[in-house]
Write a protein that binds this DNA or RNA. Structure first.
Length: 667
DNA sequence: GAGCACTGC
């Protein structure tokens, strides 16, 4: 270890970020720009105060006359709530009065609300009811540079709405220099129809606000590393022995790498000088329970340096104070969807320049910091400027449905900031057609298609829900829909308790497969478990996830009742055992026929075309049970194998019974 | 017998 010299293996970057300027200085300029331009793009670093200050400036300047509201959208729920809390404090009002927020399951606003923080996904849903978003005088889209699919769709909608509402003001806030792209998107020239608006052809302006961050030294490797996990560990020790005080944040790609790194660190701690400062290595990833995540926020014990090994969650979603050193592997796991096979992949990919600087910025929040990039400066220069926008690599079926409901019949010609590949749109349209959500003219069907839009679950489950009452199992499918939408976070594995978790899980197992098992878990939770945390802890179940399932189920039930579909809960307590299994499995087939597979003698599965080898995910009951035909909720390629999750046995002839034309097309 | 980054309605 001693032969590793920090000074010789890392070299300094040429450019250093400049210092600070408070936003108040720009107040008049901002208000003028917003007054005179339909679109204003605000480029601001973290700590510039754009999110908290701009809405208050606007409110004071009179933009809430005539009962109009200022909306500020965020890509994440926590951001919407925490920023609202802070602005309400600064404004001097009770949360939910003049300043409020609205996210799924929580509407903390009132008739008095003038500044409203909400997720961008929720604002899109508001547009389903109020297509011109007429309640709002100003809509500020925050963190637009993240390019989440909801942000992109919202921007497209806003461009359309602005043509009908010239008085509407749109503010786009972005942390990096994608400002020109946003400006170009909103300028008339980028339209299909030529426009000669005020001769200048300009509808917007860009303003830059500097942030209140500290300088960060960025260091690169001189020669690339073969093994960034090992290099991350050795760099942690180099920092620990050669640099001053301050906690270390290491960016890796996933749970496995993080566990390995922590193992390696704990093995090497013994080699430290007995009187030297010690190291406390902590993992951080979304799959941990809330309690496990809280450790990273606690102060390290005396004479101990905290080292947090994290996934991308620490890049934007979670902020930890006291980080002085960042170690960046340069990789991130990115989800992508292959429209040809319909299979999602989740593989480690090099980060973008924007993401790398976001990671580096995590070092300079409380004092000057250092960022060690585990790649060369040439590697960095070769990185793409920004990540591929989500809209270009995701299953678009839910969004095509939403666009149709918003009156955008031709989804190919919609105003996209960056258009998705045609194959993604075609695949989404085909699926929606096979589910009968779209007719042969690709128009939304009534009532099935329009109802599927309203249900906040993915299209295949929405279809399943809407056929459930004809199978007499609506109550059960409601539960299954809520449980599957948790995305595999039902079980919690605590350190060294793998066996215990497995046996806890077996207690709920149903022969028919994972969907009925999930149903058992939920029904035991609400009856025997009395919806209590104690029950969850004893059974290795994620309490937070179960609470969420209860909320989701309630919301779905309310939607169905609004459609006039009654939910009979009277028999639900005994349903799984009472011979409803077959109805439930048949019903699932009406939505998931496109996700069918046949088990082979060796226990692997083949998709219907027969070309793709699928493996039951180890979290599935079907991992070690016999079956013939099955349907599954999800399929994912992790680079090694293609896994299917949430699997249930069905009969082959049900596929023909409920999706004959789909399977005739296939063969 | 072996594993899923993150977010949202």
């Amino acid at each position: 270890m001693a032969d590793f010299d920090l000074g010789s293996s890392f070299i300094a970057a040429l450019h250093k970020p400049s210092a600070l300027l408070p936003i108040a200085k720009h107040r008049e300029a901002l208000l003028y720009l917003i007054e005179t331009n339909p679109v204003t793009i605000v480029v601001g670093q973290t700590g510039s105060g754009k999110t908290t200050q701009i809405p208050q400036f606007l409110e004071q300047a009179g933009w809430c006359g005539d009962g109009k509201i200022i909306a500020v959208t965020q890509p994440r729920r926590v951001a919407a709530t925490t920023v609202a809390v802070r602005v309400a404090e600064e404004y001097g009002c009770e949360l939910g009065k003049e300043v409020g927020y609205s996210i799924r399951f929580e509407d903390v606003t009132s008739a008095a609300t003038r500044i409203k923080f909400l997720t961008d996904g929720l604002l899109i849903r508001e547009a389903l009811v109020d297509p011109l978003l007429s309640r709002y005088s100003i809509i500020m889209v925050d963190e637009a540079h993240e390019r989440s699919i909801s942000t992109d769709i919202l921007l497209g909608l806003l461009k359309k709405i602005m043509k009908r509402r010239p008085e509407l003001r749109v503010i786009i806030s972005s942390a990096t220099l994608q400002a020109e792209d946003f400006l170009k998107f909103f300028s008339p020239q980028s339209d299909d129809q030529p426009s000669d608006q005020n001769g200048k052809g300009q509808t917007g302006s860009i303003i830059s606000l500097e942030g209140r961050t500290y300088p960060i030294d960025v260091l690169y490797l001189e020669i690339p590393t073969e093994d960034y996990v090992e290099k991350a560990v050795s760099t942690v020790f180099e920092i620990h022995t050669k640099e001053g005080d301050g906690d270390i944040l290491v960016f890796l790609t996933g749970r496995e790498e993080i566990d390995n790194a922590i193992q390696a660190i704990s093995e090497r701690i013994d080699q430290l000088h007995p009187r030297a400062q010690s190291i406390l290595a902590l993992p951080l990833y979304a799959g941990l329970s809330t309690e496990q995540q809280m450790y990273v926020f606690e102060e390290a014990p005396e004479n101990t340096r905290k080292v947090i090994l994290s996934t991308n969650i620490a890049e934007a979603s979670v902020t930890i104070d006291g980080i002085v050193y960042v170690v960046d592997s340069g990789f991130v796991k990115l989800r992508a969807f292959d429209p040809r096979t319909g299979i999602e992949s989740l593989t480690a990919t090099p980060v973008s320049k924007a993401a790398a600087s976001q990671r580096a910025g995590r070092a300079g929040r409380t004092r000057p910091g250092k960022c060690f990039r585990l790649y060369t400066e040439d590697n960095f220069q070769a990185l793409p400027d920004a990540n591929v926008p989500e809209i270009q690599r995701t299953n678009l079926a839910p969004f095509v449905l939403q666009l149709k409901a918003l009156g955008i019949d031709n989804v190919v010609r919609f105003n996209y900031l960056t258009p998705p590949p045609a194959e993604l749109l075609i695949k989404a349209t085909e699926l929606l057609f096979s589910l009968r959500a779209l007719d042969e003219y690709a128009k939304l069907t009534r009532p099935l298609g329009t109802r599927m839009v309203e249900l906040s679950v993915e299209p295949m489950m929405a279809k399943t829900l809407l056929t459930a009452s004809s199978f007499g199992c609506l109550s059960e499918i409601l539960t299954i829909a809520a449980m599957t939408s948790l995305g595999g976070s039902v079980w919690i594995q605590r350190d060294g308790e793998k066996k215990q978790m497995e046996s806890a899980r077996r207690k709920f197992a149903a022969d028919e497969g994972d969907h009925l098992t999930l149903l058992n878990v939920y029904q035991t939770f609400v009856t025997k478990g009395k919806k209590e945390a104690r029950f969850c802890h004893d059974n290795h179940i994620n309490f937070k996830a179960m609470t969420r399932a209860v909320s989701i189920r309630g919301q779905l039930k309310r939607y169905l009742e609004r459609f006039g579909i009654a939910v009979d809960e009277s028999l639900s307590a005994s349903s799984a055992a009472a011979g409803k299994g077959e109805s439930i499995r048949r019903c699932l087939t009406t939505g998931y026929f496109a996700h069918a597979a046949k088990m082979q003698f060796d226990g692997t599965f083949r998709n219907v075309e027969g070309g793709t080898i699928l493996y039951a995910h180890p979290s599935s009951l079907m991992f070690n049970r016999k079956a013939d035909w099955v349907i599954f909720h999800e399929v994912m390629d992790t680079g090694n194998k293609i896994f299917i999750r949430d699997i249930t046995k069905i009969e082959k002839n049900w596929l023909l019974e409920y999706a004959s034309d789909f399977y005739q097309l296939k063969s």
